[in-house]
Write a protein that binds this DNA or RNA. Structure first.
Lengths: 290, 290
DNA sequence: CCCCCTACCGTAAACGTTTACGATTATATC
DNA sequence: GATATAATCGTAAACGTTTACGGTAGGGGG
């Protein structure tokens, strides 16, 4: 009869809205659309709709979103946190809204997280570079205060020490997780005299790696002979024949699906998933940049 | 006092939810995240939250989403349509939900659209190729039934006839708007004997162009000397030094902002914007592939 | 034939707000 | 000091559902 039930009224009485919030820092980084697609595909199948909340790495906006989503009575939350300052996140967790964190764990008692083993991934990447004979390997990082970055740095450090290499602080630089930051940092690194230059760089994500590569090439050096580069994420464009970026792959789409199904369990009241840290295995995919 | 008003209850009585729906065909195509970011930035500023609805080019899913969003009482809709079959879209328009279409106009009386001048953009691209001496130019398109594709094809055809060139049907191929489709089509085109081969291709979007380039290179040809390639959209990765794709640029982020502000006007009851077709100017950015 | 149980239908309360209206109190002006 | 106006407070209805409960009717069994 063309009758459409009013989901708002239903939500009011049923106390569930069949709606979840997805908070991510940068939808412009192809990593996130891929996991968002996984989340969404799983969500529609389960009859849920998702609010897209892109924070542009802005913690304040993240907090505003958190409040808005609470007010909109979302049944659950999937968050890729934008900041290490988690007081507002803790508030949400304590409020009882079911939440799963992606891409980054949160320092809070029983938070549920789906994350890649960042230190292992980074370690594999750097050990691969060492294996290939590199001794001066730079770390080009994203935001220093983000644990993803810290863990990847830790893997880097660990790989060095595992192989008896000293950590050279001057080769460790951080900025943001964007391409221009990689470009900027690499240009700085290339300013030092040739003998002090690194021969390889491990970038904390693929966007950074792309910026690094650009800087390297613009300085007349070639890749990988003068400078090997490996990234992290394996975004789709890493596999382009012109790029062929060696990188640590994350199962992005599946992470999204897993994130939703885990959230679903949480929402169904499954204590089982509560507080679980699901650690996924990274796989180093070797292409031509390193 | 920690009191959080219940937006659901508010929505019920106020008959507005401060919520809009965004329906797009493929969030994995970097074009869409960029416009989504523009929409979102404008939306948060105005106090709105946006439902992300990714259809994967599936018309049925689009229709399902449309119903869900109606039921969820969204105040407005921004749609990048996935199909030319618009009966369900017409239903929505007639239902009075304020809607603006992006990236593609809809064949319905007074629909409001924000679109790039596709035929002009394509024409510019192809005329540029002709200027560079190309006579056999292929068209590698996306979905045939999508008007975006038809309009770009029309621009292509027009450029040819403007320059006294005959349209060679065998050089016009369509598939989907994805990279693998471009790759597949180009491989087919390259199967014909060398003398019948095109010397240039105009691809209906950048993803297709990337696939085309891959196929060309894998066939041992070089770009642009053996095969010139120009795309459409100017996604961020088109500007990578390794890619340097010549392409027709769209103001993606600004289109998003404009889409939201236009929708806002519609929602405020502004008859002014109703039924308006806003046609944006493309700009050909010349890089190194063509 | 009467009673009991079941099934169905309709009615009312509840969900958490907003808004409008009425009443009460305060303030200012004459 | 009295009246008129303004401001404040509280109350009730409304938004569109769901759910629970009570009542009625019908059917079956004693």
């Amino acid at each position: 009869m063309g009758y459409q039930p009013n989901a708002i009224a239903q939500g009011l009485v049923k106390k569930e809205t069949k709606t979840i919030g997805l908070i991510i820092p940068d939808i412009t980084n192809p990593f996130f659309p891929e996991v968002a697609r996984g989340i969404e595909d799983a969500a529609v199948e389960a009859g849920y709709t998702v609010f897209l909340c892109n924070t542009n790495w802005n913690a304040e906006r993240e907090e505003r979103y958190l409040n808005v989503l609470m007010q909109k009575q979302v049944d659950g939350l999937i968050i890729g946190p934008s900041s290490e300052e988690v007081s507002h996140l803790g508030k949400i967790l304590d409020s009882g809204i079911k939440t799963v964190f992606i891409s980054r764990a949160i320092n809070h008692a029983n938070s549920t997280c789906i994350i890649i083993d960042n230190v292992l991934g980074a370690q594999q990447a750097v050990e691969y570079l060492i294996q290939r004979g590199h001794r001066k390997i730079a770390f080009v990082g994203g935001r220093e205060d983000i644990s993803t970055n810290r863990e990847r740095l830790q893997g880097y450090t660990q790989a060095l020490s595992n192989n008896g290499l000293a950590l050279d602080e001057s080769l460790v630089k951080t900025g943001s997780f964007k391409r221009d930051s990689g470009y900027f940092i690499m240009n700085q690194l290339l300013k030092s005299e040739a003998c002090n230059r690194p021969t390889a760089v491990f970038a904390a994500n693929d966007l950074l790696a792309l910026g690094v590569i650009q800087a390297v090439k613009e300085n007349g050096l070639s890749i990988p002979s003068d400078m090997a580069v490996v990234g992290f994420d394996d975004i789709e464009f890493a596999s382009l024949p012109e790029i062929q970026l060696t990188t640590v792959a994350q199962p992005k789409y599946d992470m999204g699906k897993l994130a939703f199904s885990t959230l679903m369990e949480l929402m169904r009241g499954g204590g089982y998933s509560s507080g679980r840290k699901i650690l996924l295995d990274p796989v180093l995919v070797i292409r031509e940049t390193g």
